[in-house]
Simulated scan of single mutants.
Amino acid sequence: MTQLQKYIWLIDTIRRAGKISLEEISSRWERNKDLSDYKPLSRTTFNRWKDAIFSQFGIIISCQRSGGYLYYIENPEDIDEDELKKWMLDSFAISNLIGENLSLKDRIIVNQIPSAQSHLATLLEAMQGNRVVLITYCGFNKKRSYTFPVEPYCVKLFENRWYLLAHNVSYNKIRIYGLDRIESLELTDNTFKLPKDFSASGFFS
């Protein structure tokens, strides 16, 4: 388990409990051998994770001293009002939950998300640097594929499929492309400027 997954586990444990003591957190941690190898969660480790969670996610874990030193999420609205952060935390939490119950693997059915692994990472890298991407794409019901440059504006997960919203340089139009229809994808050295008034949520509204 990565350090990030441990942070997610702690956030999810406190979120689900509402308010919870360090003793109970440690007990839940210790009972899960896949997470803890049956070792308790020390206060020093807990405090270190709490500080890292605030640094990485902006999530504040506070302590209510009256009633037995209970820990809670002080700013839950920062999770609930941020769709990406909520989705990420929920996804990690579900992953952790399934990992805790691998003995039920034959009774838990999931669907693979097409191309999430093969293309998503490269597209996010391109979006970070506003770099033009050369894609080879075969549209639905098309007999042949085409290669052309696009400027990646955003990606969207919809009905278990990833999509790319991009400016097609050749046609000078904004188009939507299914990641599962992309045959190959290559970063170029060319860069672009994202329009100042562009809003991903506004576009899809």
Results as ranks from 00 to 15, higher is better:
Gln64Met: 14
Cys138Glu: 09
Gly67Arg: 02
Leu97Tyr: 11
His167Ala: 01
Asn160Ile: 00
Arg144Glu: 02
Pro114Trp: 05
Leu123Ile: 03
Cys154Trp: 00
Pro76Ile: 03
Tyr146Asp: 11
Asn141His: 13
Cys138His: 11
Gln64Lys: 14
Cys63Phe: 02
Gln64Pro: 06
Lys143Ile: 12
Thr136Ser: 06
Ile61Lys: 05
Leu157Arg: 00
Ser91Met: 10
Ala52Ser: 10
Leu157Gly: 04
Ile53Glu: 02
Ser145Glu: 13
His167Val: 07
Asn172Val: 11
Leu89Gly: 03
Ser103Cys: 08
Ala116Val: 13
Leu70Asn: 07
Gln56Arg: 12
Arg131Leu: 10
Lys86Ser: 04
Val150Leu: 10
Arg107Asp: 13
Tyr69Asn: 10
Asn130His: 15
Ile60Trp: 08
Leu164Phe: 03
His119Cys: 00
Glu81His: 00
Gln117Arg: 12
Leu134Glu: 14
Ser115Asp: 12
Asn96Asp: 11
Ser170Arg: 06
Ser170Cys: 10
Ser62Leu: 02
Asn160Pro: 01
Gln117Cys: 09
Glu77Lys: 06
Asp82Ala: 01
Trp49Arg: 15
Asn172Gln: 13
Trp49Val: 11
Asn160Leu: 06
Gln128Glu: 10
Leu123Asp: 01
Phe92Arg: 00
Lys86Pro: 01
Met127Lys: 06
Leu157Val: 09
Tyr146Thr: 09
Leu124Cys: 06
Leu89Ala: 01
Pro76Leu: 00
Val169Ile: 14
Asp78Pro: 07
Leu97Arg: 11
His119Ile: 07
Ser95Gln: 15
Ser103Thr: 08
His167Phe: 02
Ile135Val: 04
Leu134Cys: 09
Arg144Pro: 04
Ser145Ala: 14
Arg131Glu: 01
Tyr71Met: 05
Glu81Val: 00
Glu74Cys: 00
Asp90Ile: 00
Asn96Trp: 01
Ile98Gly: 09
Glu151Arg: 08
Asn111Thr: 10
Leu97Pro: 14
Glu159Tyr: 05
Asp78Ile: 01
Ile94Val: 09
Cys138Ala: 11
Leu164Asp: 05
Glu100Gln: 10
Glu159Gln: 03
Met127Ser: 09
Leu165Pro: 03
Lys143Val: 07
Ile94Trp: 06
Val155Tyr: 03
Val132Asp: 06
Arg131Gln: 12
Ser118Val: 07
Asn160Asp: 07
Phe140Tyr: 14
Ala116Glu: 13
Val155Ala: 01
Ser103Lys: 09
Trp162His: 06
Val169Asn: 04
Leu70Asp: 01
Ala93Tyr: 07
Lys142Asp: 15
Asp80Gly: 02
Arg131Cys: 06
Leu123Val: 03
Ile61Tyr: 04
Ser91Cys: 08
Ile53Leu: 03
Glu74Trp: 02
Leu165Thr: 14
Tyr72Ser: 05
Leu165His: 14
Cys63Ser: 08
Arg161Cys: 10
Lys142Glu: 15
Glu77Arg: 05
Ile53Arg: 05
Asn130Gln: 15
Leu89Phe: 02
His167Thr: 08
Glu74Arg: 05
Leu97Asp: 11
Leu84His: 15
Asn168Cys: 10
Val132Pro: 04
Asp80Arg: 05
Ser95Arg: 15
Arg144Tyr: 14
Cys138Thr: 12
Lys156Asn: 07
Gly68Gln: 02
Met88Asn: 11
Phe57Thr: 01
Phe92Glu: 07
Ile109Thr: 13
Asp90Ala: 08
Ala116Gly: 12
Glu125Met: 08
Cys154Gly: 03
Pro152Asp: 05
